[in-house]
């Protein structure tokens, strides 16, 4: 089979696996075992695809994506490794080693694209202001899915069509200060997103609850689910103070808030 066609086919497997988590709620097509098997199927060597997929899947087991952290991209690695094993008779282990720079490039693209989409969010904001509602949600369904597709297609296609040397060269071109710096940027962007949410939520006298939530998670290492459940209990307790009794004289005292402080 023509290398160009193989590269496109393997790239499309990558797009399909990426869209599994983007458009299908992560049905688990985005797993090394499935991606590698699909590559084997398309390149006419199912047993090799299965073997590579099983090997990479074992490595990736136990890696659960939590929060904004970007884990080593085993799916991308698995797809590329399967393609190399099918096309060059490399063993599963060798193919995995070759696949590492490709996974690194995919991750770098991932950081850049997720930042670009953060900028697109602002484009959508102003589109809504201008009454262009379709433009706003197309940022999600068209631009978002499109960028995520490129993020997988490009490194896979390059690796299979031109070779991993080129991919390695691209990765080497990106200076380390830039990639570690962008990593810090993503953290500040997350802080920005949460701060935006807070501007809509903070009401007079409610700020202490924000800090209670923070302190519980920071000092006691409680998860957000634990913090939310404690919040429900606290809210019920405070509701007793806030609403009890004052309702006989509704309207007179309805603005009373035991936590009210005189900020503003």
């Amino acid at each position: 089979m023509n290398t160009f066609i193989s590269a496109v086919l393997v790239g499309l497997v990558g797009v399909f696996c990426m869209w599994d988590s983007r458009l299908l709620g992560r049905l688990n097509f985005e797993q090394p075992l499935v991606g590698a098997t699909l590559v084997g199927l398309l390149l006419g060597d199912v047993p090799t695809g299965l073997a590579v997929g099983a090997a990479v899947e074992l490595v990736s087991m136990g890696l659960v994506q939590v929060g904004a952290a970007v884990p080593p991209d085993m799916v991308l690695g698995g797809i590329v490794a399967a393609a190399f094993a099918c096309l060059t008779d490399a063993s599963a282990e060798t193919a995995m080693t070759i696949a590492i720079p490709v996974a690194v490039l995919g991750q770098l693209l991932g950081i850049v694209f997720r930042s670009i989409i953060a900028a697109l969010t602002h484009v959508a904001d102003s589109a809504i202001d201008n009454g262009k509602f379709k433009t706003a949600y197309r940022m999600h369904i068209c631009a978002g899915s499109g960028l995520y597709a490129v993020m997988y297609f490009l490194p896979i296609f390059l690796a299979v069509f031109v070779g991993t040397d080129l991919v390695q060269a691209i990765v080497n071109m990106v200076p380390e200060w830039l990639s570690t710096g962008l990593n810090v940027s993503t953290k500040i962007m997350t802080a920005y997103g949460l701060a935006l949410l807070l501007t809509m939520m903070i009401k007079k006298g409610m700020t202490p609850f924000l800090f209670i939530g923070f302190l519980l998670a920071a000092y006691l290492n409680l998860s957000v689910i634990a913090v939310a459940l404690i919040g429900v209990c606290l809210a019920v307790v405070f509701m007793g103070f806030k609403f009890n009794g004052s309702h006989a004289a509704a309207g007179v005292d309805s603005d009373y808030d035991p936590l009210e402080d005189d900020e503003d």
């Binding site: 949460l194 609850f209 923070f214 998860s223 939310a228 809210a235 405070f238």
Partner: peptide, 20 residues
């Protein structure tokens, strides 16, 4: 009132767990 408290506390928890 309940949602306001639970929501704010959750965001507080997310600040401590998501940014790092």
């Amino acid at each position: 009132y309940v949602c306001g408290i639970v929501g704010l506390m959750s965001v507080g928890g997310m600040i401590a767990t998501l940014i790092g």
